[in-house]
Amino acid sequence: MNSRLPETLSAKQEQTRQETINKVLHALSELQAQGCRLSIKNLMEYTGLSRSVFAKPHVRAVLTEYVAAFTRPETPTTDEKVPVHQTKEQKLRAEIREKDTQIKRLREEKVALKEECELLRGRLYLLMQRQNLE
């Protein structure tokens, strides 16, 4: 028994995953830009997706990466020494780290969008082929 899915079904599933990921990323950035709290409830309202979608591994990975990239530890542990006045160099290094994280996230998003674009091109090609046969 062959447990491999047909190629068209796999492509459709991947396309759906990418669309969901893009919808979640867009919602995260919009909610953050509006100053809203990033919660599953707010994401559900903004995207129209069900709660179970946010438990799926590919969506959970996006949420984890996004939150890690844009949140800072609120209170340092007692072992950490936080200078009262950071030097200009320290501030710039922190800003560079934040920008590097943002660049990494954007590169990953770019790859996901390219994959989605390829899937859509393939789907468009198949639809055009069907239309030409009719």
Rank of each mutant, 00 (worst) to 15 (best):
M1H: 13
S3K: 05
S3E: 15
E7S: 10
E7N: 04
T8V: 12
L9D: 11
S10G: 04
A11I: 08
A11F: 00
K12E: 08
Q13T: 08
Q13Y: 12
Q15N: 14
T16F: 03
R17M: 07
R17V: 02
Q18W: 09
Q18I: 12
T20P: 02
T20I: 13
T20N: 13
I21A: 05
N22A: 15
K23I: 10
L25I: 01
H26N: 04
A27L: 01
A27E: 00
L28H: 02
L28M: 06
S29H: 03
L31Q: 01
Q32N: 11
Q32M: 11
Q34T: 06
G35I: 14
C36G: 06
C36P: 02
R37Q: 10
L38D: 12
S39W: 07
I40Y: 11
I40L: 13
K41I: 11
L43S: 03
Y46K: 13
T47N: 13
G48S: 04
G48M: 07
G48Y: 02
S50F: 13
R51A: 10
R51F: 01
R51N: 06
V53F: 10
V53R: 12
V53A: 11
F54Q: 07
F54R: 12
A55I: 08
A55K: 04
P57H: 03
H58E: 14
H58T: 06
H58F: 09
L63N: 01
T64V: 02
E65F: 08
A68N: 08
A69Q: 02
F70V: 00
T71A: 04
P73M: 02
T75A: 09
T75C: 10
T78F: 01
T78V: 13
E80D: 03
E80V: 06
K81S: 08
V82G: 05
V84R: 03
V84W: 13
T87N: 01
Q90F: 04
K91C: 14
K91E: 10
L92R: 15
A94C: 09
A94V: 14
A94Y: 07
E95Y: 15
R97V: 12
R97H: 15
K99T: 10
D100I: 07
T101K: 14
Q102G: 03
Q102T: 05
I103M: 14
I103F: 11
R105F: 09
L106Q: 08
E108F: 03
E109N: 15
E109T: 13
K110Y: 05
V111G: 07
A112Y: 04
A112W: 01
L113A: 09
L113Y: 04
L113N: 11
E115M: 14
E115D: 13
E116V: 13
E116C: 11
C117V: 00
E118F: 03
L120N: 10
R121Q: 11
G122A: 05
R123N: 07
L124S: 00
L127R: 12
M128R: 08
Q129R: 10
N132G: 00
N132S: 14
E134R: 15
E134L: 15
